[in-house]
Design a protein around this nucleic acid. Structure first.
Length: 594
RNA sequence: GGUCCCGUAGUUCAAUGGAUAGAAUAGAAGUUUCCUAAACUUUAGAUGCAGGUUCGAUUCCUGCCGGGACUACCA
């Protein structure tokens, strides 16, 4: 609840006492923004309280409105439409509200709540480069980290790299077979892209073999299983697990190429991690926890020696945890890693940023941790986000329909350069500054595009239609910031200090802006509660939009009243501050000029 | 088959059970002697279908239709 709402609700509570002798606590009152066709800023819905007033909606609204107008200093006028009481607050209240906000040092930053949260995101495979889906994941994880931090959490970002398994062996095998010893240096290819090339190559060669087997009469299943390349990849995996020197050396070499490539991509993306886990270190974890669960009879053993958990009471199935031969499955190591992370960080919350295709997996995992009696299990959270679809459907690496992360970012930089030069906005910038600006704008457009959509929902990306720079976009907001920056530079030049003096009357556009500014802290709290950067994006857009309306309508430097002039500079400065802060939460920088 | 998610303007996205369902973009029409026109203003355009709960349903419930995901002793 923001400062204005709190005041209004307190007054409404008093009004209920006075008008109907009824005790209505302020925190049980809800307000909504007034629709723009009516006068006012806040609307109180009467319908739910007719039982208390025992009067018609209009009468009830009028009675409360009259009381507020008479007895409350904050309400200037009101109107009642059907069951809606629209309140027009005094300009003085908006001025004093703005003064309060303006003087706050860390507006939007909540004090420490003493809680630790870790966020796991990115979690790439080392057999191929990052793609568009990873971008959504990384930007989400990064943004949610910042949002939680601004809400008082102590945040640690972790990355669990999937650096082992059959898929890596496929790349290794294809490289051995067809690589002729090429390296990132010799091929002038980023390491992750080089490895990705061999992963694709494996698949091509493998398909040929399968087709051959099919032609000689094998069934599809047999062919898939018995293709020599597949058998060899599996044998390579066994060698790796046995620590075969040559295999491990090749694995290390190829992975190091990939890590160099990833490091470069992360750098470009502007994301970083506090700790990186490797599955090659963690994939054997979890067995002791399973043993523990067996002793507690949380799990059970079948005749063949395999270990299972029965989740049928919770509406799920039985789930295998250990094979009959005692080896792990995927969830085994997740159980172990979950435990490890708690040992390392003693978190209150542990967030997994993972696509919604794994909803079931995490549901099961969290239930298991709960059944095991881990007291931290309540703090486990799957931030399940929707896939990024292409017009043709899902991205498929084998069909070459993947949108590569590095390529896409480069395209965004190029597009930014194109727009900027076309608009003739490079004057006064040296080459280095210009390049910097293109990156800021291009990355801003991309991040904003991916973050403005509710994380839970799947979204569409059309490579044919490049990401916009106009309308509800990152550059639109960045542009608003650049415009304000110009105003502030000019004010500084004229030695005008922003200030909030006594102002009797405001322009409607100024009220609009203040009305949005006042919502910032609650917008951030809600974004944290819902793990949704989209709410921050939406907020910052609303703010920029309303400021642009003000900018268009109300002149700043032509204002003769000194108080108003300084107030408008202060209002502009505050909007710039919030845009800067809000966009920073999304991991987007804002330029001083563009 | 079972479980889960999603169907909103031509398109991409909004909408704690509240008013005449908001934006953006594409379409139409305007705004530059005035602080950056990547902006602003006006205009037209949508809740898949059928029921139910409610003073009130895009929102909650049921059925149907359409799309997607999961359903490995893979990760």
């Amino acid at each position: 609840m923001d400062y204005l709402e709190a005041k209004i609700k307190a007054e409404l509570s008093k009004a209920f006492q006075a008008c109907f002798e009824h005790d209505l606590p302020a925190d049980q009152i809800s307000l909504q923004p007034t629709r723009k066709e009516f006068e006012g800023s806040h609307t109180f819905v009467i319908f739910p309280y007719l039982k208390i007033s025992r009067k018609k909606p209009e009468e009830t609204g009028n009675q409360i409105g009259e009381y507020l107008k008479e007895h409350s200093s904050i309400v200037e006028r009101f109107n009642v439409v059907k069951g809606f009481l629209n309140l027009k607050l005094t300009d003085k209240l908006f001025v004093s509200t703005f003064r309060k906000i303006f003087e706050e040092e860390q507006y939007g930053q909540q004090p420490s709540n003493g809680k630790k949260v870790i966020i796991e995101f990115s979690s790439p495979n080392t057999n191929k480069p990052l793609h568009l889906g990873h971008l959504r994941n990384n930007f989400l994880g990064d943004a949610v980290s910042r949002i939680l931090a601004s809400n008082g959490y102590e945040v640690s970002k972790v990355n669990l790299v999937n650096d082992r398994g059959i898929h890596i062996c496929k790349s290794m095998l294809a490289y051995e077979r067809f690589g002729s010893g090429e390296t990132p240096e010799s091929s002038k290819t980023k390491g992750d892209h080089l490895i990705g090339k061999y992963y694709v190559r494996f698949d091509q060669e493998y398909k040929k073999e399968v087709e051959g087997l099919l032609a000689s009469g094998s069934s599809e299943e047999e062919a898939a299983k018995n293709a020599p390349l597949m058998l060899e990849a599996q044998s390579l995996l066994r060698k790796w697990e046995q620590g075969d020197k040559q295999t491990v050396a090749l694995w290390k070499k190829m992975n190091s190429w990939v890590y160099d490539g990833f490091a470069q991509s992360y750098q470009t993306m502007g994301v970083s991690f506090d700790k990186i886990y490797y599955e090659s270190d963690t994939y054997l974890l979890g067995k002791d926890v399973i043993e523990d669960g067996l002793r507690q009879s949380v799990f059970f053993k079948k005749e063949d020696g395999s270990v299972w958990v029965d989740l049928t009471d919770e509406g799920m199935d039985q789930k295998l945890l250990l094979r009959g031969d005692g080896t792990s499955v995927y969830i085994t190591q997740d159980i172990g890693t979950c435990e490890l992370k708690h040992k390392d960080f003693s978190f209150d919350k542990s967030v997994y940023v993972v696509g919604n295709e794994q909803d079931y997996h995490f549901k099961v995992l969290f239930h298991i941790m709960k059944k095991l009696g881990r007291d931290y299990s309540e703090g486990l959270y799957h931030l399940s986000y929707g896939m990024v679809d292409l017009p043709s459907g899902k991205m498929k690496s084998r069909e070459g329909t993947v949108v590569d992360a590095d390529d896409l970012m480069q395209e965004m930089f190029d597009t930014a350069e194109k727009h900027t030069t076309e608009l003739g906005k490079v004057e006064g910038l040296n080459e280095e500054e210009a390049q910097e600006l293109y990156r800021t704008l291009g990355l801003g457009a991309l991040k904003y595009f991916l973050l403005k959509v509710d994380p839970k929902k799947r979204m569409l990306f059309d490579p044919q239609e490049s990401i916009e720079f106009q309308g509800n976009t990152g550059p639109f907001i960045q542009y608003t910031h650049a415009r304000i920056s110009a105003i502030l530079r000019r004010a500084a030049q004229r030695e005008l200090e922003p200030a909030v003096g006594d102002i009797e009357e405001l322009d409607a556009k100024e009220v609009d802006v203040i009305n949005i500014l006042v919502r910032y802290p609650s917008a951030i709290v809600q974004a944290a509660d819902e793990y949704s950067p989209a709410l921050v994006a939406q907020y910052v857009y609303d703010l920029a939009k309303s400021y642009n309306g003000f900018y268009q309508e109300v002149s700043i430097f032509n204002e003769e009243d000194e108080n108003k002039l300084l107030f408008r500079i202060a209002l502009s400065a505050m909007v710039a501050r919030i845009i800067h802060h809000g966009m920073a939460l999304l991991g987007v920088r804002v330029p001083e000029r563009m």
